[in-house]
């Protein structure tokens, strides 16, 4: 029982991370129907940015005070991620808006390759994994349950809380604010939105920036939780996050979050309980994805596609 709960907890933590990244995928896909493969790399870069901020940009005297170090890391990561996301949109994707459908996808794959290589080759020692500081409360929370104890890192709690609160804020923002309305309008019909006075370019840039911001938050939390990072995490988490977005129904914020948690839990528990061990944990995730899509092609919370005639 206790071990199961412990597994469940780590599944939820993983899910929270995936959910935060998935939000960026889902918003961008919702608005311009692009699988932005480079989004996972934005997440990866932001982890490195956080580590760099800690190492080179804050005075030593602050390094041991997480109340200062963590916000600084967050600012550094968010700045880098948002600038990166915006540049990407402006210079890689926007020129291709009227190109054949697959062109931007290939560009996204190319951008993602470039980002990974730039970091790998230029960040000191990034050819193997680097360390990221803990920068948060150190004492774990120990909960006693029937049959043992469950140990929760403080960062785990933080992660889950941030992802849920973040998604709620985002949902409110998208449904209530002016910019949110513009985003939904552009997603539904860019031409009509334009006629109604929405500036589609600005809306799209904003969407990318918002996605970058969430990826950076995820990045910092990833860093302080796992304390290590390499350049491969972008691809891996990117795939999981996009899978989560698709599972939940692309375009749906609620879907992305729930999809993220489902994937986190299935991967962790599947790796423990199902045959094949942790080696096959990814396989269970993908099998679940395929099953969901076959029986519910629009994902769990997506709108069914309308036949137009």
């Amino acid at each position: 029982m206790a071990t199961l709960l412990q597994q469940l907890a780590s599944g939820l933590v993983l899910g929270a991370l995936i959910a935060l990244i998935a939000l960026g995928y889902t918003m961008v896909y919702g608005i311009i129907q692009l699988i932005n493969f480079a989004h996972g790399e934005v997440f990866m870069v932001s982890i490195f940015a956080a580590a760099a901020t800690y190492k080179w940009f804050i005075p030593e005297s602050w390094e041991n005070t997480w109340q200062i170090a963590l916000p600084c890391m967050l600012v550094g990561a968010v700045l880098v991620a948002v600038v990166l996301a915006v540049l990407m949109e402006r210079f890689a994707y926007r020129p291709l808006r009227n190109a054949p459908r697959l062109a931007p996808l290939i560009t996204a794959l190319g951008v993602s390759q470039m980002l990974k290589e730039i970091v790998r080759l230029n960040y000191p020692d990034a050819k193997s994994a680097i360390n990221v500081p803990r920068a948060f409360i150190d004492e774990p929370i120990i909960i006693t349950v029937p049959g043992g104890t469950v140990v929760l890192q403080a960062t785990s709690v933080l992660l889950i809380a941030v992802s849920i609160v973040g998604a709620v804020i985002l949902q409110l923002y998208v449904s209530r604010s002016r910019m949110g309305r513009a985003m939904r309008a552009t997603a539904q019909d860019p031409d009509t939105a334009k006629l109604m006075g929405v500036n589609p370019n600005r809306t799209i840039v904003f969407t990318f920036a918002l996605g970058g911001l969430l990826a950076a938050v995820a990045g910092v939390l990833y860093g302080i939780h796992l304390n290590t990072v390499d350049t491969e995490v972008g691809f891996l988490y990117g795939i999981f996050a996009f899978t989560a977005a698709v599972l939940g129904g692309v375009g749906s914020i609620k879907g992305a979050v729930i999809g993220g948690f489902i994937i986190g839990v299935v991967k962790t528990l599947g790796g423990q309980l199902l045959p094949g061990g942790t080696g096959y944990d990814v396989v269970w995730v993908f099998i679940l994805l395929i099953l969901v899509l076959v029986f519910r092609p629009q994902g769990l919370f997506g709108e069914p596609e309308r036949v137009r005639a």
Binding site: A103, P104, I106, T107, G110, V111, E117
Partner: peptide, 12 residues
């Protein structure tokens, strides 16, 4: 890196 760059440039 150049592989990625080439993809981006050619698509552009």
């Amino acid at each position: 890196f150049f592989f990625g760059l080439a993809l981006v440039v050619i698509m552009r």
